[in-house]
Structures are given as C-alpha cells and as structure tokens.
C-alpha cells in the first residue's frame, strides 16, 4: 500500500490536469454508447437474435452491450496510458521532476495505471447505468461487471504503458490505433466467435479484448461458467506483466 501512497501524487496530478481535456474525457465514454445504440439497437432491429458461443439465444443489443462495456474499459485505459504518458515522458519532463522526489519508477507506473483505472472505471460505471436503464442487464452477476471492467482496464493500461515507453515519435501512435481498432471490431464484439473460420478463431482468442468481452458477456447475461476463470487469469497476468515491464523501462529511461 505504500507504493500506492506515493503513487497518489501521480494520480492527483492527472486529475487536476485533466479538467481541461473534458471533451476527450467525455468522448471516451460516449463512443461505446453510440455504438451500442447504432449497431446494437438500430442495426439490431434487423439482426434480431444471435446465438452466443455458449449456445444461448439472445437479443442482438443484449449481445453487443457487454462487448461495448469491455471496449469502454479498454478505451479509458489505453487513451490515458498512451497519449498522456508519452507526452509526460518525452516532452513535459514531468517524470524527471517526480523522480527528484521520493517517488520511485515503480510508483510512477502504479500511479499512472491506477489513474487509468479510475478513468476506465468511471466510463464503465456510466455505461452500466445506461445498459441497466435500457434493460440490457439480465443477471445479478452483473454486480461483478464493474470489477471485471477494472481488470480489463488494468490489463490494457499495463501493456499500453509498457508499449509507450518504447515510442519516440507521435506518429508511432498510429500503431496503437492500428491494433485497437481491429480489436474493437473483431473480438467477438459484434458477432460471435463461431462466425470465423477455425484458424481465425485462434487469432481472436489470443487478443485481450476478446477475453474482456467473454467476461462481461458472461456476467451481464448471467451465463457464468468455468471459462470465465481462464479469461480472468489471462487479463490479470497481462496487466501484471505490463506493469512490471513498464516500471523497469521507466527506470531505465529516467535513471540512466
């Protein structure tokens, strides 16, 4: 907890500097909501029902809503740890100043990720409220949907931050976009895994968002099985490895 104590300063600074960027903040929340209403509801009227990978037949919007929740958690985490951390690392020299205080690189990594989680958590909570009012929540298991969203956020924040430490120019952010966008469209978000040929199914299974979607879909539809444990483990490991790597890299970048 001591680590988090020091990391608190990193978080506080983010909260204060973020007031200016409220449109960006809002947009991260609205994007999944827009998709839910457009694809889930609008196009859903034409799709009607869909058979999930576990065999349940559900309304299309019910199918899409958990996936958008997982995406909201991903968006919240990724936007922050990539753009913001990069800016601070390469331009604002903020970390150098922080390192002059007793905050160690590890604390900085934990602090940034925690901030990303707070943000992802706000998005996810907001999204859940919308989903609840629209009647897309079908089970008491859904009380776990928010913690699950935090796990998803942590996973993306960890790897995202690690990847960011390797970047040197803004142009390289295209790469993050090029990874996030296909993931958003193809991680069994809008159509089930069974739509893919066998070989592609394995590719989809390898992506973190897929496991986030599986987790949220299980919880929100009340379709909870042992498969969820695997997905949960995948995300936890990913987040842990990411944060560990990021802490090491920041140390290398700043203390040399």
């Amino acid at each position: 907890m001591l680590a988090l104590g020091l990391a608190r300063f990193v978080i506080l600074r983010n909260v204060t500097s973020f007031r200016r960027g409220w449109p960006v903040f809002l947009s991260g929340f609205f994007e999944p909501v827009f998709y839910l209403f457009s694809i889930g509801v609008g196009l859903g009227a034409l799709v009607k029902t869909v058979t999930t990978d576990s065999g349940a037949v559900v309304g299309y919007a019910d199918f899409v809503a958990p996936a958008m929740l997982a995406s909201a958690a991903m968006n919240g985490a990724i936007m922050d740890v990539t753009f913001n951390v990069f800016h601070k690392l390469r331009f604002a020299k903020l970390y150098d100043t922080m390192l002059a205080t007793p905050a160690a690189p590890k604390d900085i990594a934990v602090g940034e990720v925690t901030w990303a989680l707070i943000r992802g958590g706000i998005y996810s909570a907001g999204f859940l409220v919308v989903a609840l009012f629209m009647g897309f929540v079908h089970s008491w298991w859904a009380v776990l949907a928010l913690p699950a969203a935090l796990v998803i956020g942590a996973a993306f924040a960890g790897v995202g931050m690690w990847a960011t430490t390797y970047m040197t120019t803004w142009q390289q952010f295209e790469i993050i976009f090029l990874i996030v966008q296909p993931m958003f469209l193809f991680s069994a978000t809008f159509f089930p895994l069974s739509s893919y040929p066998e070989a592609l199914q394995w590719v989809v299974r390898a992506t973190p968002l897929y496991h986030g979607v599986v987790l949220e879909r299980g919880l929100m539809l009340g379709d909870v099985g042992s498969g969820l444990v695997g997905s949960l483990a995948y995300l936890l490991v990913l987040g842990g490895v990411g944060m560990w790597g990021a802490g090491r890299r920041i140390e290398r970048l700043l203390l040399t």
């Binding site: 449109p23 960006v24 947009s27 827009f34 457009s38 609008g42």
Partner: peptide
C-alpha cells in the same frame, strides 16, 4: 471533440449502416 462527439455519431446514425 469534433472527431469523437460529432463525426463518430454522424457515421453511426446517418443511414450508413442501417
């Protein structure tokens, strides 16, 4: 703001996908 709060909804609700 334009990108996220205007262009994305335009794309989604202007009869492009349904």
């Amino acid at each position: 703001t334009i990108f996220r709060l205007v262009i994305t909804p335009l794309m989604l609700f202007s009869g492009t996908f349904f």
